[in-house]
Design a protein around this nucleic acid. Structure first.
Lengths: 240, 240
DNA sequence: GAGTGGTCTAGACCACCCC
DNA sequence: GGGTGGTCTAGACCACTCC
């Protein structure tokens, strides 16, 4: 199960192995895992390496530890907010909905002052402005506008946007998206939003602004979304 | 600076030391820290111990690492969402507002089915129902109702609630609050909410339900809050 | 090649829980 | 007392970055 001569780190292999067992149901919520020392013995690896894998799984919410007692499988977070940052597509799939998208605008504009500030670029620099209606099971879920610096992300096209923006940024360009700051507020739909989202003017909506960053804190993307409040709830798990 | 004979773990002492330096400005955002090996040498501790402290600070968003280059201080998250779970009081203080509270109801009721389910107790078991108007700079910010199992948290009184509920649960009772699931949605104020929050009926509000858990996943508290949308935004930092 | 973080080992002792 | 996780050591070699 563990390949010590593989270039894949041992702690990562063990992590995936345990995640698999949890997802398959071999390890059930609340059940105690074999002790760290037993994993070390079984796979002939150091206990510190086992702890590295365990620690990651605890941070990601798969396991929890009780001193003197053992390590246990956490309750399933079914229908719970995803841990970590996800794309709209991943988010909808996790909710059991079929994601869809309708591009309504794709152009290069001069960065307005606020967008420039968020992206740490000069005011007036070229940025892509991508406006989309996001669908879930063919029904409008959100109106979304994405701003990306042309200088940082070159070669973006309508086709790429329609396929997968994140895949292009992470896969093709090799950037590592690391984290995002999100600001969530409640509001009511204006005329434009009500039209695109097929709701009444004045109906409640949830505004989410997301600023996305790479590992070294370079801002890579700003997304402003208006979600239909009757269809969308934001769920999240926070550590103390 | 580091006391090796102290009962406080070395990695934790180092963590606090570096956090202090960042907060004091001795270490500025973007600046490279001395290499791990240098810390180990300076304080005569193992490099693994230094890494343990660094790893925690990276996870908490204070530092970031670039392989082959070094470890750096992350950008300030001033006026950004707090990392982690905070009380209303902590939240308001972080926003530079003076928190306040007005108790409007404190009683023991029979748990309704939904509350019982969230708290993992029998329907009809006794629960405290605590209704409060939460103030920021003396102005209503949110209407908040808290449900807590009487069997799990004994001896709760109005006085304790007015002082600090979390301090009682964590300090006096010794429970360790570990994480919380939050569900955020947009809505409009009904008659009761509009009255307590001093806003018009139909004005946008943000509903937040928080289910709080201990380390071993025991639910300890359910809080339902209605925040004034004109005064409150929810900010959060998420890892990919 | 020198310096950085990334991974890994084979031990050790401590603190806490439960019998 | 025996088993668990929590902390710590003193090394090692690898991968990556920069000169």
């Amino acid at each position: 199960m563990i390949n010590k001569s593989s270039p894949i780190p041992i702690y990562y292999q063990l992590e995936e192995l345990i995640k698999d067992q949890i997802e398959k149901g071999d390890l059930k919520p609340g059940a105690a895992l074999p002790p760290e020392r037993e994993y070390a013995e079984t796979y002939q690896i150091s206990r510190m390496t086992v702890r590295q894998a365990f620690t990651k799984l605890v941070n990601d919410g798969y396991l929890y530890r009780l001193q003197g007692k053992g390590t246990f499988v956490a309750e399933r977070k079914v229908e719970q907010g995803l841990q970590g940052l996800t794309s709209f597509t991943e988010d909808m799939r996790a909710r059991g909905l079929e994601p869809g998208s309708q591009l309504i605008n794709f152009e290069v504009i001069s960065a307005p002052v606020r967008i420039a500030k968020y992206l740490s670029i000069e005011e007036g620099s070229p940025v892509y402005e991508i406006k989309r209606i996001r669908l879930a099971d063919q029904v409008p879920m959100a109106l979304e506008t994405t701003y990306i610096s042309v200088d940082k992300v070159k070669g973006l096209t309508k086709e790429i946007v329609n396929r997968s923006l994140y895949e292009y940024i992470e896969g093709t360009l090799g950037f590592k998206i690391d984290h995002a700051k999100q600001i969530i507020e409640s509001s009511v739909a204006n005329q434009i939003e009500s039209e695109y989202l097929s709701i009444k003017e004045g109906a409640p909506i949830m505004l989410i602004q997301r600023n996305t960053y790479l590992e070294d804190e370079t801002p890579i993307e700003v997304v402003k979304s208006s979600y239909r409040a009757d269809r969308y709830k934001f769920m999240i798990d926070m550590k103390r």
